[in-house]
Design a protein around this nucleic acid. Structure first.
Lengths: 340, 340
DNA sequence: AAGCCACACTTTAACGCTAAAGTAAACGCA
DNA sequence: TGCGTTTACTTTAGCGTTAAAGTGTGGCTT
């Protein structure tokens, strides 16, 4: 193994004190021209690289942030991480990546791990709120910055947040279907979490805004999985008069719904139009490209990074902020005009 | 901010030395029963958590590994990271995530950053070898473990590797098409990197094994992007006799090829069968589900993690190993029997 | 009863760095 | 000429932890 170059070594070889070397490297004013040059030359000669661990210990800043996401396999969260990474790495921060697997116990373990590692801040993403509120509060009180992405935690935890406008998601999707001339619009609801409830709320809002009467039987319980969508769609297909459009709580369930429709011998969008939410990658490569309401995950990540870096920076905002990411309608084939 | 609990504080409150506390927490033998209990009680009372940074400084181990991948948006690499994460986190290691954006300069910067942060080891993934060989060698000589995933770096860098069997990828894909009764099989080649070349090599091997004459004009230069596939396919469509099957160097280019085929008014697989490689997520949701030759990225990540943890562990292997991940054929719609 | 050893601790030093306080020499000025 | 100031450093201390060496007490041996 090669010998490790430390400031000590540089100082020794030049016959100066370690502090002098430190001052040169930190651009302090009180070092003479000649000495500075000698130190710099030696630094270059020996290929000195500062030891970030030692630095962190004295400065009490690791320049490292932790991210906890529920699932690494889900492109959704990965895109957020990509957004985070680009901002954070440009500012000289490292990202410690953790997956909670949707398990509150693992989440807790990861958060403790991040705390022990003295990260400067944490970005926490999750579909459902999972407790650990006590720990999160403690983190804040320890001076570790915290940003939550789309997490319905008790507002008990005071921190910055990046949230999606789920009501608007439901409203946009449903309004689009109405404008396409659809009359009997069903909704496949997600799991009983706040996101789904708000999307369902947006569905109701849109119908009301257009003076359409809400029929409770057209709102069926579904879920976020493809199979949930298939199951729910089967029930919707049993209604008379039949629905001619469906807003599914998310894209996988929308895909499941399409499969059920095809199985019943009907066509998308001719017989029934479909709109999903939260665009999956490749959604435009489907047999019938899926219209969806989505928002930029990259932005979500970037915004979270900005909020966090500001909070742990020299002049943090004095209040906690919530950034809302606006959703957008992405029109593709599955919501085309009805067959005459 | 809450006061931070250190060993110092625990020691002071109990009137013992810091070392005693350290020994209790590290389960050393030479601490009396009573003292041990008192320390443990205090630790629980104050909710003490060790400071990993300080620990790293003395132990010269950060229990942190770095991963450098070229692109976070590409599910391919993300799945590798997921595999890594599961192994690594179970063993108490943290993962510092970096994206090189395929840029050798950024890669170098990230590697230097990881070195400064004193990571115990690095996993490096990349499509094309990008130099930085000098740095990589230096890392090894500094005692930082290194595992390369599928990187065609000069064998100059001595380290453990996880590689895919690209020749077998090409062979499996092509043999499958032959067995499906296809006679004129084309190949859309990837970019001029070793992976593509080996896949093309596998294509040749399969043809030879089945006694089929290789026609050079059926091997067209393509690339790894969808547009590359489209462009290359257009050229293949110009050949007479026309090809009745195509093995594309990867899935995006296979999708591009399919689009070109449809645009020419032909059908997949009736007129032309398509096989891709390196399964993309959702490949089975395509208009015509794509047959592909793939391998487990999760395994790739897990194996890389195991190799690295072994190398930086107490009894590392004395030689550098290469683990080959075997590819598998995933048959879907795009390689069905020809029409008639 | 002197010597030895084991036990249960404490002291010292170190990891590599930075901040704060200290100091010696040169300089400016009345 | 003597005193304060500036310049260019060095010394000291500390971040939180662990390893190695040191210490004092009591019990056991012979």
């Amino acid at each position: 193994m090669a010998p490790i170059t430390t400031m000590k070594r540089i100082a020794a070889e030049l016959g100066v004190s370690i502090t002098t070397v430190s001052k040169v490297l930190n651009n302090r004013e009180d070092i003479g021209h000649a000495t500075r040059a000698r130190v710099l030359a030696k630094v270059a000669e020996l290929g000195y690289q500062p030891n970030a661990v030692a630095r962190s210990l004295t400065l009490r800043r690791t320049h490292t942030l932790g991210v906890v996401i529920p699932d690494l396999m889900h492109s959704f969260f990965v895109e957020i991480v990509a957004g985070l990474e680009s901002v954070v790495s440009a500012r000289g921060y490292g990202l410690l990546l953790c997956s909670s697997n949707e398990d509150p116990a693992k989440e807790r373990a990861e958060l403790e791990m991040l705390r022990q590692r003295q990260v400067d801040g944490i970005i926490l993403a999750s579909v459902n709120a999972t407790g650990n509120t006590d720990l999160l509060q403690r983190l804040e009180s320890l001076g570790i910055g915290l940003v939550m992405i789309d997490r319905d935690d008790h507002p008990a935890v005071r921190c910055d947040r990046v949230i999606t406008d789920d009501v608007e998601v439901g409203r946009l999707a449903t309004a689009h279907l109405i404008e396409q001339g659809r009359k009997a619009i069903g909704h496949i609801m997600g799991p009983p979490i706040a996101h789904s409830k708000r999307r369902a709320g947006g569905y109701r809002v849109a119908l009301k805004e257009h003076g359409v009467r809400i029929k409770p039987e057209r709102m069926v319980r579904g879920g976020f999985m493809e199979t949930d969508g298939t199951r729910a769609m089967k029930r919707l297909l049993g209604l008379r008069p039949r629905v001619d459009a469906v807003f599914a709580a998310n894209d996988p369930s929308a895909i499941g719904a399409m499969k059920a429709i095809w199985k019943a011998g009907l066509r998308v969008p001719d017989d029934i139009a479909i709109v999903g939410a939260g665009e999956i990658t490749l959604g435009d490569l489907l047999r019938v490209p899926l219209t969806t309401v989505s928002w930029s995950r990259d932005d979500q990540g970037r915004q979270a990074a900005e909020l966090l870096l500001d909070r742990i920076g020299p002049t943090p905002s004095d209040r906690f902020r919530s950034v809302v990411i606006p959703p957008q309608l992405i029109v593709r084939g599955s919501s085309g005009k009805p067959a005459l």
